[in-house]
Design a binder for these strands. Sequence first.
DNA 1: AATCTTCTTGACCGATTGGTCAGCTTGTGT
DNA 2: ACACAAGCTGACCAATCGGTCAAGAAGATT
Lengths: 172, 172
Amino acid sequence: MQLIADIAGLPKANLHYYFATKEELYRRVVQEIFEIWLDAAASFDDAPDPATGIGAYIDAKMEISRRHPNGSKVWASEVMHGAPVIQDYLEGTLRDWTDGRIAVIQAWIDAGQMAPIDPRHLLYMLWATTQHYADFGHQVATLNFGRPLSNAEWQIAKDNVKQIILRGIGAI
Amino acid sequence: MQLIADIAGLPKANLHYYFATKEELYRRVVQEIFEIWLDAAASFDDAPDPATGIGAYIDAKMEISRRHPNGSKVWASEVMHGAPVIQDYLEGTLRDWTDGRIAVIQAWIDAGQMAPIDPRHLLYMLWATTQHYADFGHQVATLNFGRPLSNAEWQIAKDNVKQIILRGIGAI
DNA sequence: AATCTTCTTGACCGATTGGTCAGCTTGTGT
DNA sequence: ACACAAGCTGACCAATCGGTCAAGAAGATT
């Protein structure tokens, strides 16, 4: 809290005036990240076919990994520790959201627009792969001659992820 | 350190006799996880084709996620914080290992055994997807009616990952 | 101008952290 | 039997943590 107050440029006691406890502040941070992720799902719904919908979703999630890498890390850390603070989000909003997308994917499968994979595990793969570029960004950079991905390299990453997954589910 | 000593059943001072600092103990933990991962790579080398090699690698990594979920989380946490303790591993062993597998994958591509994707990003996808079941195991369990994956569900997860990726890279 | 609420602050607190140290016990080699 | 090293332990320490509190400063309302 002292460090956060210093960076924010106010006394620690004043920070505690706005956020009574550290957990309260932390919860707000996690909450905002979660909402950013939910917004990225808009690309999912209005799509006529899986290649368009999932492709746009990958693009959106990759862009979030690039622009909010620390937010992604905070979420990962929270979940890795068993979601002690935002378990209600997992059981509420996230579960509902997931069920909704599973229905969309299942409809595509039933319509013969993609291979009959398990929609749930496809979602896990989408989350894992896109968030990896944020959560493990340091490792990616180390293996990229110690430099963060350039704009062109981000584009290559996006294209590879989209190509492998969309082909993998028989959408292209 | 007090908590670790309690669980280990010895006084904290005695723990410090074997590990002078907390970082020294921590480093050993991360080191052992890393070696487990390296061992899983054996399945990669002797394979005649990508479907066999990468399929076996996915199986091995998924099995590690199931049996050593906390180890995976420790590694993830370390990398997420910028690898302050094991950066030398990233720049040494991991970089060498990665370069070696990239060469193997590139050889498969050159031989026309799989699609011309970027081997580096394929490796990232393999790591991300398999480790997701450990690092985000709590989230996966929450979305699985609050229960950890059963043996049968782990098999379904493995099959889905293998099917999507192997098809995605044109190996099957 | 007077009153009341909101905001701001430095000083302080108990709890916990990783780590130290002198002295004890146990094991080993002669 | 002796000496020496290795292993073990309780008590202690400085540093840091999240959080509190009384008192003052700034704004708003009448």
